[in-house]
Amino acid sequence: MDKQQLLSEISQMAQSGQVSHADVMSAFSGAPTAAHEIASSKNLSIAEILYYIGGAIVFLGIIVLCYQNWDNFSSFLRIFITLGSSIASLIVAVLLNRYENLKKPSDAFFLLFGMLAPLGVGVTFKEAGFDLSSNVLWVAIYAMLTAVFFGIFWYFKQKVILLFFSIAFATALFHYLIAWLVGESLSGSDYSKVWEYQILVIGLVYMLVGRYLAVTAQKALVGVLYGFGSLFFLGSALALGGWQPNQNAFWELIYPLVVFGVIFLSVYAKSKAFLVFGTIFLIGYILKLTGEYFTSGLGWPLALVLAGLLIMLVGYYAVRINRKYLIA
């Protein structure tokens, strides 16, 4: 292997997250990567936690200020406080990010920017006379926010918080697109079904995006995406099964395959979230079937005994899978 090939290999492995800057530097110096360097690159430090808490409290302060004094504010002041704060947060975040030792505090300001942006844009449109009850307006707003945040993330590639908000706003965009298409065309129960399929799709997309990010440099979001993805996917699939006498036979019969599939994926993806939620929803499915079909007659007590034994078995194997495959 020549030098160019080696450097190209290192570059590819760095992009996929298999090698860090600290690893390469330690190879240069001949000393192993220090444990504290590994730890600090993976976990949030106390300082970072305080930065984020501070950002959340600033956001809370702005919300309380608006709530207490909204009627006394002019249109200009309402827009200035909400949208103005959002833009100010972005400017501060971009400026702080230019300094190596201030990159972490800049994350907190990017967080503030993300939390205030939809509020600021919504207030601006409302003060401009637009009807906030219109789904078309919210489709436009969230399309704009998704594009802006994704564009800024593209520029600041290391800022995972911006990717988080891009995904959150894209989720809202998807929801409002469906709501706009459906409109008033469906009855209440049919609209609930559309909601359940929406959440199923959102859960599936989160798991797939998490799988993709697991092989890139943005690994920090993988746990969150796997967690919410499996929660939404399994929860909506269970809801789609319905309840007797209006149960959906397809979803009730296929659900064990779905949930065991997610538990199996926990080994492949090395995800505790898949294992935990898979186990919880498998237990929920057992209890649901018991409640649906065995609540009358002699069958119920026997079904409860059987359900209890099954749950113990599920718990035993969940712990075994965790110990054998997921603990590094």
Partner: peptide
Amino acid sequence: QQGNSGGGDFLFGGGGGDYNSWYIKGNNRA
């Protein structure tokens, strides 16, 4: 038929209509 519920709100809402509107519905359209 009268509208079902309020439209969009801050984060999640939607439903496309409201109680103060009436619709003519048929063939999955309103």
